[in-house]
Structures are given as structure tokens and as C-alpha cells.
Write a protein that binds this DNA or RNA. Structure first.
Lengths: 229, 229
DNA sequence: AAACAAAATTCTGTATGCAGCATACTTGTG
DNA sequence: CACAAGTATGCTGCATACAGAATTTTGTTT
């Protein structure tokens, strides 16, 4: 309905909401979040509103709003009068977060077994097979991305928005650490074995088994990343 | 160490951080959050930056920063070009959130059995006994507050910061609904029975039992509040 | 009278300016 | 030479100003 002419970038109209346009706010939030995850802004770094604003090409006002948003997400900390600092996670913080994440993913797996359609499970299987190809080639980055996608997919298949939401927040806090916590070959093999069992349990819709594997998988993740903290 | 003279309002120095002063930002966030929970700002209400700012006695800049913060917490929604709106939760949203909350509290109970000191458990027992007095008197508001305090205390006793954090976010979203979802006497009695079992399980450090009760308690909460949505 | 179009008003989004606090530097003193 | 006090700079926090989008109101036409 919006435009018949081919080649136009995107429709301005969305099915459910009225108009959906990308906002500067979202762009800044996403950009700074990426800078933190990719280590461009190391933990403990004090964020200079003037410099960072010039770097991103925005003025201080929308930047400050974005920073407040990231504070709420737990990626930044705020010292009154001293501005925002990239949050430094202690080993205990990470361990605690992984315990919660394991529990949340366990719940997600349980719900996914109940609510996912067969077609959706097949899509996860495809992601899994693709990931295994990357593992055979020892191609770490695509493996890493597909791995994340599979976990996100299981969360999505729980069909529980609240669960997805809190998982995302916690996941974002740890992304940086999982990014650098690249394990040795033997532990990698262990993670792959976990994933094999995951997909099997999901296809069998064995809620208890899937839940258990996901929870245990997260506990092993701790062993893999603890050295990096 | 800070001041020997009695009567001074508060020490300016905290044990761990350097200086702790209340910030305008935090005050605005807390105020608007309360206005939402207490229904002064009903779900669906469009927040007018000019009016709200005048009402609170602050200019638009810090107000907007606070609103962005609350958007991240999930209490507000943002329509680009149209400002912030108090988020409207569907019945499914609430149900989903309660499922997650039940799981989180179950985990918290499990961890609390492991990590809480005897003294801390005794404090929870005192809260519980006090709450029971209020129940005998059918004094709803203090009962409600003490109830919340007990749940918060169990979360705190888990000694897991990440768990407390995500629980708080989810809890804040539902506070308004639990505030209005005041049940009849028979369901109230059921909730009280749950609490009796909770405190017993905690004192026995029976992790499985406490976890089960907390999870079930949250599922019953759904029955109590569903009519209010 | 109803529907559409255009103008005016109002509100959001962004930039800039200013005041106060924090920090770094400099200078004076023991 | 070390340390402390005073000064100077720079940054944050907040307010205001301006531009563009959204909404409402008004006028015109059918």
C-alpha cells in the first residue's frame, strides 16, 4: 500500500504500529552498546560526554539520554558529578549472572518444548547444523554468532516476552566477557556436545531434559570464561 | 568517623563508595515510578513533558533523561515523535511475567537456603510474624507492604546481585497490578498459608520445598490478579 | 451538513549556554 | 624536597532556545 515502485528502501508503515522510523536515540544506544561489547570502551573507562558526542556526531543532549538508558540496562554506572563509567564486573557478578541465565534458559527450554511449532524447531535444527559445519571448520566467529542465535531462538520459542526481555538484559551485560572468553579445543568440544543434546531434547520435546542441559551448559560456561575476568 | 555531633541528618560518606549524594535524576525516576504504581498516571496515558516537568518542578532535560530510564525498565513505551506513554500490560504480559517471577523467586529461595545466616532467617521470621499480626487484624496495607518485604528479603538472602536486579525490574512492572488486585478473604487465606510454609521451609533450609512453594505461590498470584487486568 | 484541505498551534527532538562542582595544577611554606 | 593550600581549568547537570514533526482547528467545497 505504501509504495508500488520497486527499489524504495523500506515501507514507512508497519502492520501493527502506525509509523516506525529509526530514531537517533536507538542508534546511539546500539552504537555505544557495541563499543562496550567489542572492547572499544573498556570496563572502567570514564565516558566523556563532549568527546564521545563529537566522535558519534551528536550533541550532548541525546547522548546523555542514551547513557541513562544504558545505565538502566546495567552496562554503565553513574557517579553523581563525575559522569558515566563502563561498568566493571567482578568475578562474582559474572558467576551470579550465569546462574540466573542458566535458570532463565532452563525455563525457556521448558516453555519452548510446550509452545514451539514443528516448523520452528526445524529452523533451530538448521541453525544447529550450520553451526556444526562452522565447528568442523574451526571457524570461531560464525560459530560464536550461530551459538548466540540458537540460544536466542530457544528464548523466542518460549513465546514469553517477559522472559526474552530479562534474558536480553542479562545477556547484554555478559556479552563482552563471552566475547573474549574463547576457550581451548577440549572445552569447545564439550560445549558442542551440550548443543547436540539440546537440539535432540528440543526435537523430542523433552522439557525436563532440555531444561537440565541448558542449565548445566551455563554452569560450564562459567568454567570457560572465569579465566578472562 | 564522619561527624561526631548528634542530630546531623546523614553522613556524607559511605563505607564503600566515595561520596553519596541524592541526585535529581534518581528523585525524578522514583517519583514518576510511584505515580505509575499508584495509578496517578494510568496505563496508556501519554506523558506530556511540559506539564509533567512543571508539575515536578524540573525542566524538560532531566525529566526526559528520567523517562528514558523508565523506558529501559519497561514501565514506559516510546513512540518516536509522539513521546512516552505509560505501558499497557496485556493479560498475557502479566501471566508471562508471573511465570518468570515464580522461577526467579524459586531460584532465590534455593540460594537463600544455602547462603543465608541464621540471624538473617530470624529477621525474616520476624517480618513474617509481624505480617501475620496484620492479617489477624485484617489490616490490608501494612500486610501488603510486609508481604513485599518478605519476598524482597528472600531475594536479598540469595546474595545474588544479578538475581535481585532482574527481579526488581520485573517486580516494578507488576507492582501497579498487584496494588489493585486485592483478593477476597478465601484467597487471602490461601496466600497466608503459602507464607506459613515458606517461612517453615526457609527455617528448615529445605531448598526444594521453599523453591516449590515460591513458584506455586506466584502461580496462585495470577488467579488473584487476573480479574484486575 | 459532512468531508477534505490548509493553516495554526502544540509538542517532541536537538543544540547551545550557563552555573556549580570535581579535579588538576601551581605556588607557597615548613 | 615534600606537602598543603589556593587557583585555574574542565566537566557535569540543568535550563533555555530553536527547528521540525504531529495534531488540532478552522475554513472551504461539495
Amino acid at each position: 500500500m505504501a509504495s508500488e515502485a520497486a527499489g524504495l528502501p523500506v515501507d514507512e508503515f508497519d502492520v501493527r504500529g502506525p509509523i516506525v522510523r529509526p530514531t537517533l536515540h536507538d542508534a546511539i544506544v546500539a552504537r555505544v552498546r557495541d563499543m562496550i561489547i567489542e572492547g572499544e570502551l573498556a570496563a572502567g573507562t570514564r565516558l566523556h560526554e563532549g568527546n564521545l558526542g563529537k566522535l558519534l556526531g551528536v550533541s550532548r543532549t541525546p547522548l546523555r539520554e542514551a547513557l541513562k538508558f544504558l545505565v538502566s540496562e546495567g552496562l554503565l554506572e553513574l557517579s553523581p558529578g563525575r559522569g558515566a563509567v563502563v561498568r566493571q564486573f567482578t568475578a562474582k557478578d559474572v558467576h551470579d549472572s550465569l546462574i540466573v541465565l542458566g535458570n532463565l534458559e532452563g525455563l525457556a527450554g521448558r516453555l519452548a518444548c510446550e509452545h514451539a511449532t514443528d516448523a520452528e524447531i526445524r529452523e533451530v535444527r538448521q541453525l544447529h547444523d550450520h553451526m556444526m559445519e562452522m565447528y568442523e571448520k574451526r571457524d570461531r566467529l560464525p560459530y560464536f554468532k550461530l551459538n548466540q542465535n540458537i540460544h536466542s531462538a530457544i528464548l523466542r520459542l518460549s513465546k514469553n516476552e517477559a522472559l526474552v526481555s530479562v534474558h536480553n538484559v542479562l545477556q547484554a551485560r555478559l556479552k563482552r566477557i563471552r566475547y573474549i572468553g574463547n576457550e581451548g579445543p577440549e572445552k569447545w568440544a564439550g560445549a558442542v556436545a551440550d548443543h547436540e543434546e539440546m537440539i535432540a531434547a528440543l526435537e523430542a520435546r523433552d522439557a525436563d531434559r532440555l531444561s537440565t542441559v541448558l542449565n548445566a551448559h551455563m554452569q560450564k560456561t562459567w568454567e570457560r570464561v572465569r579465566h578472562a575476568i
